[in-house]
Design a protein around this nucleic acid. Sequence first.
RNA 1: GCGGGUGGUCGGAUGAUCGCGGGGGGGGUAACCCUUCGAGGAAAGUCCGGACUCCAUGAAAAGCACGGUGCUGGUUAACGGCCAGCGGGGGUAACCCUAGGGAUAGCGCCACAGAGAACAGACCGCCUGCUAUAUGCAGGUAAGGGUGAAACGGUGAGGUAAGAGCUCACCGCGGAUGUGGCAACACAGACGGCACGGCAAGCCCCACCGGGAGCAAUGCCAAAUAGGGGCUUCGUGUGGGCAACCACAGGGACGCUUGAACCCGAGAAGCCCGGGUUGGCAGCUAGAGGCCAGUUGGUAACAGCUGGUCCAGAUGAAUGAUCAUCUCGGGGUCUUCGGGCCCUAGACAGAAUCCGGCUUACAGGCCACCCGCGCAA
RNA 2: GGUCCGUUCGUCUAUCGGUUAGGACGUCAGGUUUUCAACCUGAAAAGACGGGUUCGACUCCCGUACGGACUG
Length: 130
Amino acid sequence: MESEPADQMDGPPAVFACPKLETLTKRADFVRASNARRQGTPGIHLQARKRAETEPSGIRVGYTCSKKVGNAVARNRAKRRLREIARLVLSTEGRDGWDYVLVGRKDVTANLSFTNLEQDLRRALKKVHA
RNA sequence: GCGGGUGGUCGGAUGAUCGCGGGGGGGGUAACCCUUCGAGGAAAGUCCGGACUCCAUGAAAAGCACGGUGCUGGUUAACGGCCAGCGGGGGUAACCCUAGGGAUAGCGCCACAGAGAACAGACCGCCUGCUAUAUGCAGGUAAGGGUGAAACGGUGAGGUAAGAGCUCACCGCGGAUGUGGCAACACAGACGGCACGGCAAGCCCCACCGGGAGCAAUGCCAAAUAGGGGCUUCGUGUGGGCAACCACAGGGACGCUUGAACCCGAGAAGCCCGGGUUGGCAGCUAGAGGCCAGUUGGUAACAGCUGGUCCAGAUGAAUGAUCAUCUCGGGGUCUUCGGGCCCUAGACAGAAUCCGGCUUACAGGCCACCCGCGCAA
RNA sequence: GGUCCGUUCGUCUAUCGGUUAGGACGUCAGGUUUUCAACCUGAAAAGACGGGUUCGACUCCCGUACGGACUG
């Protein structure tokens, strides 16, 4: 939102080379993403949506772990692992102007090995972008 | 050595790289850099008690209703917690459990079985008398039988027509009074002569405690929404009519146009109700504070003093990922019984205003004291 | 986060501390029918879990588990 006057004045190219990840906080954004494209894998469930042109740019990510995932410890652990793979994968493979929502799965998201979880997200991203 | 009891304690460590939340500093002040802090014994359940904030009440307080607590004494900011003691129950013992006031203030209940279930009463019996020598009638009795969770003292002896606390001894029960103890209570006990069943985690009575709501409390800022509804007052396009109302003009009439029928009646002030928003800031983390050491009082809980040390503040919600080494356990395997090799950090669980407790969950380890049995001396 | 409520056959529900825990729908078996449906007869099937009070607990008390509602 503040970046538009900034690139009119200076236009630092580094901002677009590596877009910063923003976190989704509004329930409406989550609902819109879940109504768009979705892709399931053994480790995670991905929901994604390309925002309209009028909305601001940048990659936005949300994380969802319902009570089905387990107790508070299991939910927080699943969310932390989702955050970690999102940081690794989406900063290079995410597309500008998209919203991504990563949904945790019972038992699997918290226990699957990290490399497998990472591959799951890459596979899901390819299918969603296609 | 084996088995058990009580109390306490730990809940992996170190390092590397990348990353996250808060505070402070720098900076071209939303980037970025430096620095520092960053989950638990239960953070949990929300079962109690407070702090704090708002509301209510004339300041405090009292009373009614409702709810809670319930042996005694102490402790505390407070408690249903804790400590010490008493009574009752369990265990060979160490020790453990215990809502444990009042049943003569009143009401209620005690199914089934049984003769009888609460001001006692008499089915089978036993005994006496009468009669027609009976399976009849009248009376006495409560020893014995049977039922039940519970049957109106128990055993023995005397006594009697048969019996009975009718009498006696012992036991049980009640108990004036005395002694010890702050008290709960304990011990002794003249005397009574058996009278007084149980349930109050049934209603209730007594004593004591509690005003209500909760940080999503509460205060502030910004934005947004209907130009919303009701009542009161003032007032209400043009014409007619005292007025209700009628005609004309105006607005609406649901995707759009038209508008015959249909609907609305400007505006201002006050009060009440309703509606919209779900952003930010404060509250918000140092307090009856925790821990350690020493010391004073106290059996102890705890309290006082001195010194040191520690202290998360998020809000789609911060502690993660990858790896290495080391140990604690566990598993597998080999064994010359010394040990070697391989795999594996592995329980319950994540702060949400804060504090004191309780309860519940918990892989496994460690420490101290105590009890029983066995062995040795 | 806070406040509050509930748990009984597969499902919906009833219950005065004394029952073999009642009813409806569903299920199963038999009858009826050429067969199915409907109907008739019968059967199986429950007190969330753990303690306590009581002679006796689905009921009363305490704790735990699970489920639900409200709250800006």
